[in-house]
Amino acid sequence: MEIGLNHYLVLSTILFCIGLIGVMRRKNLLMLFFATEILLNAVNVGFAAISHYYGDLTGQMFAFFVIAIAASELAVGLGLLIVWHKRHGTIDLDTMSSMRG
């Protein structure tokens, strides 16, 4: 059985679904970060598959930039998370309501 582009796109969709479910149901901010990593990886799989099946390197380039963005997002986000945890002792999403009107 031949594996085509559609197989990879379906896999990418399923992984994206799992990431979105994680984003919606997680309360802990660290777990929310894990879910965003899953989202970015799902997109990377789609990029690499399209790059392979159309013989074009642009998809791989975009995947590299997505990886760079994921790394910098993590560095800044984790720093903010550590500062928040030092001040409030929790990283629960529900406690971050200081700007509620």
Binding site: M31, F33, L74, D92
Partner: peptide, 21 residues
């Protein structure tokens, strides 16, 4: 990324069960 997450988790209370929405 995983090493950074593992490092960051040392700052948080990870043994506690995570409460879910």
């Amino acid at each position: 990324v995983m090493a950074l997450y593992a490092f960051g988790m040392m700052f948080f209370d990870t043994t506690r069960e995570v409460k879910e929405n």
